[in-house]
Amino acid sequence: MNGRDSKEDKEEHEQVMSEVHLGCPPGIFGPHISRFTICLPSGVESSRFNGLFKDQEPCTDQNISFDEDGDLVLPRRRQISRRCFTMKIQHNITSSIPSVGLQVWKAELVLSDFVLHKICTSMEFHGIVSLELGAGTGLAGMLLALAARTVFLTDHGDKILENCLKNVQLNYGVLKHRNVIYVRELDWTHPWPPKDSSDHASQERFTWSSFELEEVQKASLLLAADVIYSDYLTDALFGILERIMSQGSEKVLYLALEKRYNFSLDDLDIVANGYSKFRSYTKEDSECEGLEPGSLPCFMGRCIDIAEIPQYVGGYDRGKDVELWEIRYNKDTALMPC
């Protein structure tokens, strides 16, 4: 057994848990359905989804405090009414590393907030075709489908794809009368576009038809969340991004990630090597100013200040290690880490 096989075997048996699932019922190892409440933040007015956002029952907001003598202070109660809707997401509480797509991660929720803010405050995502890479549970892509014409939710492995499709079905009440969502297999190590399986006598459930391949080639928006955790997968990700983004009209990728720190024997320090690998493929726009076109990196990125994005999805803490990047591809250069 070589080193790579040993590492993959270890990852297959090692269990990890997303912080999003803290507080879920203990002892649950199979699929669990959580309800995520989506609310319009204060200061955001949107009339585009009047049939979707409904007035929530007013709740009482009362802070408990004490005066300097230790006596209870009872402030006047304030009634808070919010406009909300609910998404049901089937997920695992824990998973092996190769199956992390069965869980919900903070970066996916930040990306969901970003998508919701865009569709509630602009027409930028209205009527577009979009492709999500490593969609996992599918939450961000499903929310995008409230405005986009067509959304392709892609991932690798039957368990993750079946779970993603189940989530589309669970949210039919929210998504009905909306536009088309496809759940499809996409292996980043294979050529792009995927093979046309429409002529096969026995089609697998998540293969692509010729019509879908024509439609996905029109995608102008790419999404990805929490796909940066393995150097091998990061290489594969930027490989397929180069193939997708170099074809057709200009495309933009919005990628949310969480920095994960570990102690490195090589560095004798606590470092985020996965994040460093990601940054080796990208340069911020400001770093490219004044350079000759031929010397620009393949992928030019801009880190978005997520503090400026209101929180639509309730029940999670963003923390300080989640970032959201806008990434574009420069066709003038060949694919190589910067």
Rank of each mutant, 00 (worst) to 15 (best):
E8G: 03
D9L: 11
K10S: 08
E11P: 03
V16A: 02
V16E: 02
M17W: 05
V20F: 10
H21E: 02
C24N: 13
F29T: 11
G30S: 12
P31T: 03
H32Y: 15
S34P: 03
R35K: 12
F36H: 13
I38W: 01
P41V: 00
G43A: 03
V44A: 04
E45M: 00
S46G: 02
S47N: 15
G51R: 00
K54D: 01
K54M: 14
D55C: 11
C59A: 09
D61H: 08
F66Q: 07
E68V: 12
G70E: 04
D71Q: 11
R76D: 15
R77C: 11
R78G: 03
I89Q: 08
S95R: 02
S95T: 12
W105D: 11
K106G: 11
A107E: 05
L111H: 02
L111S: 01
D113A: 05
H117Y: 14
T121Y: 00
T137D: 06
L144G: 00
L144N: 07
A145W: 01
R149N: 13
T150S: 12
L153K: 06
K159P: 04
I160L: 10
L161N: 01
E162I: 04
L165P: 01
V168G: 07
N171L: 06
G173V: 07
K176G: 01
H177Q: 12
N179Y: 10
I181C: 04
R184Q: 09
D187L: 03
H190K: 15
W192C: 06
P194I: 02
S197N: 10
A201D: 12
S202A: 10
V216L: 11
Q217I: 06
K218C: 10
S220G: 14
L223C: 06
A225T: 03
Y232M: 09
T234R: 03
A236Q: 10
A236G: 06
E242A: 14
Q247W: 06
L253S: 04
Y254P: 04
L257V: 09
E258M: 02
K259G: 11
N262K: 12
D266R: 10
L268S: 10
A272M: 03
N273F: 08
S276W: 07
S280A: 10
S280C: 12
E284W: 05
D285W: 09
S286C: 10
E287C: 05
E287K: 12
E289R: 12
G290C: 02
L296G: 09
P297Y: 04
E308T: 15
V313M: 05
Y316N: 01
G319Q: 09
L324Y: 05
L324G: 01
I327W: 04
R328S: 14
Y329A: 06
D332A: 15
L335V: 12
M336V: 13
C338I: 08
